[in-house]
Simulated scan of single mutants.
Amino acid sequence: MDLIEVDWERCKKDGLCVAECPSGALAADAEGGPVAADPAVCNACGHCVAVCPHDAIVNSRVAAVGGDVSPNVRAWPAPEVVDGFLRGRRSIRAYKDKPVSREMLAELIDVARFAPTASNAQEVRWIVVPDKDKVATLAGLTAAWFAGNGQRKQYSAMWDQGRDYFLRGAPALAVTYTHDAAPFGAADCGIALTFLELAAVSRGLGTCWAGLLTYAANGDPAVRQALGVPDGHTVHGGLMLGYPKTRFMGVPPRNPAVIHWV
């Protein structure tokens, strides 16, 4: 199948699809209509299909993913709503004894998969732990690894006292990883986790970045095995998830931004 098919009765030859193609896969013909200039460089981002207001173009690589292009929102939330949401998000380290359903976790990852990735490579992979006991097991393995290497001694001491400072007793966990060869794996996973985090907060969940587990997952075979990380892959981040025990009523200040204007 050709890279694109155009419904010429619908196409207005306005050049939107060509202008929005980030890779140069499309060009305009003599009449301004879209043609495939270099199909090999198309990364299936879907810009050409999504930007067309006339539903006049089909990209075979986008269609191959399955499903139709869904409608976009008609208007974005007001800046004060978005800004308040972003500023008010807090890292949650105390959770209610309430599970997070598999359905909810799957819904969150369904949103997070729309996060941008370098060259639309979509190399982010997920490990999801929806069981509090399994999260506790991972916390114990992480604690043992840190105790063995002598790092974070204060957290190890707290663990011995029955206080989990590694995964905070969270009822669920989401971890991202990519193949070792993924050039932008860390950035892609970080963006995807941020998407998931914000989607979770909007649904009444709390999150906290699981940096200690991430560190252990790339250094301890026992943690990797418990997570099921395939050989040749790197864990780039994780999020604890659960329903917050408390609600934060204020937004603490932050340091002023350090900006170098050029």
Results as ranks from 00 to 15, higher is better:
113 R>F: 03
114 F>P: 01
115 A>C: 00
115 A>K: 05
118 A>T: 03
119 S>N: 06
119 S>Y: 02
121 A>G: 04
126 W>R: 01
131 D>T: 02
133 D>E: 15
134 K>P: 01
135 V>M: 06
136 A>H: 06
137 T>S: 10
138 L>T: 00
138 L>S: 04
140 G>E: 05
141 L>Q: 08
142 T>M: 09
143 A>R: 03
143 A>P: 08
145 W>A: 04
147 A>K: 08
147 A>N: 07
147 A>C: 05
148 G>M: 04
150 G>I: 03
150 G>R: 08
151 Q>E: 15
152 R>K: 12
153 K>F: 00
153 K>A: 15
157 A>W: 07
157 A>K: 11
160 D>F: 02
162 G>F: 06
162 G>R: 08
164 D>F: 11
164 D>Y: 12
168 R>W: 14
169 G>Y: 11
169 G>I: 02
169 G>M: 07
170 A>N: 14
172 A>I: 10
173 L>D: 12
178 T>M: 08
178 T>G: 03
180 D>L: 14
182 A>V: 10
182 A>H: 12
183 P>V: 11
183 P>L: 11
184 F>K: 13
185 G>L: 06
186 A>W: 08
187 A>H: 12
189 C>G: 14
190 G>P: 05
191 I>V: 15
197 E>H: 08
197 E>K: 11
197 E>R: 09
199 A>R: 11
200 A>G: 05
201 V>N: 10
203 R>M: 10
205 L>W: 11
207 T>Q: 12
207 T>C: 15
208 C>D: 10
209 W>N: 06
209 W>L: 12
210 A>L: 09
211 G>D: 12
212 L>E: 08
213 L>C: 10
